[in-house]
Design a binder for these strands. Structure first.
Lengths: 192, 192
DNA sequence: TTGTGAAAAGCTAACGGTTAGCGTTATCGT
DNA sequence: ACGATAACGCTAACCGTTAGCTTTTCACAA
């Protein structure tokens, strides 16, 4: 578990963890807007500048955990069983994701995110950052080496399912309803 | 032109115009980031608090002009010649909009917007604010009194065309390419 | 072991957008 | 003419964020 990391990098990672843990705990306890960066730094016993040395923004403190979630859709396309269509693989993955983050069984974490417009905006941009990667995977699925606008559009639509489904009364049903639209659009996309 | 407005409201409107005009001129001349709110207030000869009494944010100063642009897509659906399909009407409207704001013949105003991430974000949110209105119009087109997730998805897709087309090498071709996808999705949407 | 360079962390001070609190003036309805 | 209130102003601050510069801590080689 000591990972062959030098003392230096271990301490750096520890500082980062301490800041992130402290911040998340404070946000969950008192609310995102009610806790300032200066307070977080104070509680973690570091300087404000150190906080920003590890995290590019206040919002990034919150989302330090669920890294890797973003790549699930890309992998669902790229690493799928070749016998399945890409839209089918995406549909299943989206079902799983929505099941985890559905508002009824909402974890405190997602309630926190939902409580702040800043965090919702930041989350939306996190997804958009992966739109390009997903569009490349989709282009490859069509046999293209680079994405055309139609590929980017499909990626944009798939990434939107999560948001739209979360806001729907029945998220699981919404995933199917919307994926039916996307599957139809997929069939209409230029091939080769 | 005096509009039976009282002196009070005329003065208020005049102040608002003065602030907006001054700000936009300064932004265009020196760049959005290089001009601070305090400078704008100074140049317009008002207090900083007065600026924020008229505009909710610095970004809103820039977009005070092109109000009404947002409703074009909603009107394209609601007020169209009944002989045409909604996707066809939207396609034409989107072609017109992309023609006006294409980067080649970009007006200084749109160059200003493109120069600042803050302004691009704000613009994106302006569109999203109209997603609900467009989804209602689309639901009505299907004979529904309230939008279902599929309607919201279609609205989301149509609003995305503008952004995707602007980033494409050939914006006009991209509009057609993407609208073909949307038309296919439209056909797959639940009816009634 | 010691010296050296660099990464990590710290401090101070500020900037720019935004807001709260509170007073002042002008205008409106009666 | 008068009281209510909208519009505006001033001051002072808060908050996220960054620049500039110093100090601590480690890695590595002489």
């Amino acid at each position: 578990m000591t990972d062959q990391l030098g003392r230096r990098e271990r301490k750096k990672a520890a500082t980062r963890q301490a800041i992130s843990n402290t911040a998340l705990a404070m946000f969950l306890e008192r609310g995102y807007d009610a806790v300032g960066i200066r307070e977080v730094a104070e509680a973690a016993d570091v300087a404000v500048t150190t906080v920003f040395a590890h995290f590019p923004s206040k919002e990034a403190l919150v989302f330090d955990r669920d890294q890797g979630l973003q790549d699930r859709l890309v992998r669902a396309v790229s690493d799928r069983d070749p016998s399945r269509s890409a839209p089918d693989a995406l549909r299943e993955e989206l079902h799983a994701m929505v099941r985890e983050f559905t508002p009824s069984a909402a974890s405190p974490f997602w309630q926190l995110v939902a409580s702040s417009p800043d965090l919702l905006d930041y989350e939306a941009k996190m997804w958009q950052r992966h739109a390009e990667a997903l569009s490349v995977a989709i282009a490859a699925d069509f046999g293209r080496s680079a994405p055309i606008p139609a590929d980017r559009a499909l990626a944009y639509y798939v990434l939107g399912v999560f948001r739209l489904a979360r806001e729907a009364a029945d998220p699981a049903a919404a995933v199917d309803e919307i994926m039916d639209l996307i599957a139809a659009a997929w069939r209409a996309a230029p091939t080769g």
